[in-house]
Design a binder for these strands. Structure first.
Lengths: 218, 218
DNA sequence: TTTTGTGAAACGCTTCACAGCT
DNA sequence: AGCTGTGAAGCGTTTCACAAAA
């Protein structure tokens, strides 16, 4: 398998499946069918089978999927076997909140450092103890701590510059929270979380009253 | 126009166009072509024309779009003419950070209140002064302040319950930051921002090295 | 000439439907 | 019988290509 490219829509769903499988495993459930998964997420069962079949048939016909095995497989497929180190750029409100956010540490990520250029913040820590370092130290820390992902939580006007810097020191994956268009070179994966876009999308639907059927996003 | 349903992909892009138009207007630029917009966002020019044509042809052939007019139109289409009131459920790290987040207040939203069930938090304020109220007061405050959007920033295990409550008091738009599957009735618009899914998507691409071309998401 | 607005074609994702395995 | 894996159909989105307008 793995003949086609895996779309982002698929990887997002894999992530959801993994979370649910972990929950099922915790409850001692041993197997699960695509039908049950489909009901859980409001998706079509065939879609779930296709998502999983991309990586080789680990289903059992007549039975479904073995929860423990599938969980392990997805964990590995999503690259969560080696705990990835994450740096957060910008120790403002949002950066500090993200540094302490429970969900981040959960599955396979570790927040190694916050970076900021403001001298008076440097040396301080988030509530949960993540150290704020000066952005000058980025290169050294990224190399020493093997940081793989940068989260951008700086004001919009600084964002492109900060992204350029993290790309220069060799980071290949960027999660951007700042609004506006960011450019990265080929080979670097950028994911945008744009809070304004999200809110304005809700605003549109409130203004528009287009029927209002519900979709089970992301 | 407006014969078809407008997809979420389209509304997300409208939001991006609006932000850029505001920037252009600030710089005194008077008109802009779909080609320039396309380059800015890494999109196809025809797509941008289609997006805008849904709402009636406000382009000028041979010239492009008049920045001020188009900005005004998009602002109105996105429902930003009346400032929408927003409540944040959960005054933890994330809730407090979101309450103070600059980008939120910017375009047409006002954070009216934070809600929490923890007695010792009630009565306190975020750094920028948003009051924390007890969740019991939700119904009263939503009605008095005409709150239209709820942002969910509570732990995963409470999220569905909290969403049920905000839906009961009449809120029709929910921005959910908590991980896991949330269900809302028809007529309520739900948008999920799932930080774990975002990070795991990056992790997948780091593990997979599938070429790595860049897409200009959201 | 430049650039919009838009049918038609191309593409990608999802759903259907069923053969095949347990 | 139950459920997966998958080719084919269906559907939605994007791109192409060009007529029409300024």
């Amino acid at each position: 398998m793995r003949d086609q490219q895996i779309s982002e829509l698929t990887t997002n769903r894999l992530s959801l499946y993994l979370r649910f499988l972990t929950e099922l495993d915790g409850k001692g459930v041993e197997s699960v069918s695509s039908k049950v998964l489909a009901e859980q997420f409001g998706l079509n069962a065939a879609l779930i089978r296709k998502d999983l079949a991309h990586f080789g048939g680990f289903g059992v016909r007549g039975l479904g999927y073995v929860v423990k095995d599938l969980r392990q497989q997805l964990h590995s497929i999503l690259g969560l076997d080696q705990k990835l180190q994450v740096a957060i750029m910008g120790a403002g409100n949002l950066g500090l909140a993200l540094a302490d956010y429970q969900g981040f540490g959960q599955e396979g990520f570790r927040i190694v450092a916050l970076f900021d250029t403001e001298a008076k913040k440097v040396g301080m820590r988030s509530r949960k103890g993540v150290l704020i370092r000066h952005s000058r130290k980025l290169k050294t820390v990224v190399r020493r701590e093997k940081i793989a992902i940068a989260v951008i939580a700086v004001p919009a006007q600084e964002a492109q510059q900060v992204v350029n810097t993290v790309v220069e020191v060799g980071i290949k994956a960027v999660l951007n929270f700042s609004p506006g268009t960011i450019r990265v070179p080929d080979g670097v994966k950028l994911k945008n979380v744009d809070l304004t876009v999200s809110l304005e999308s809700l605003s549109f639907h409130l203004a528009d009253r287009q029927g209002g059927g519900v979709k089970w996003g992301i």
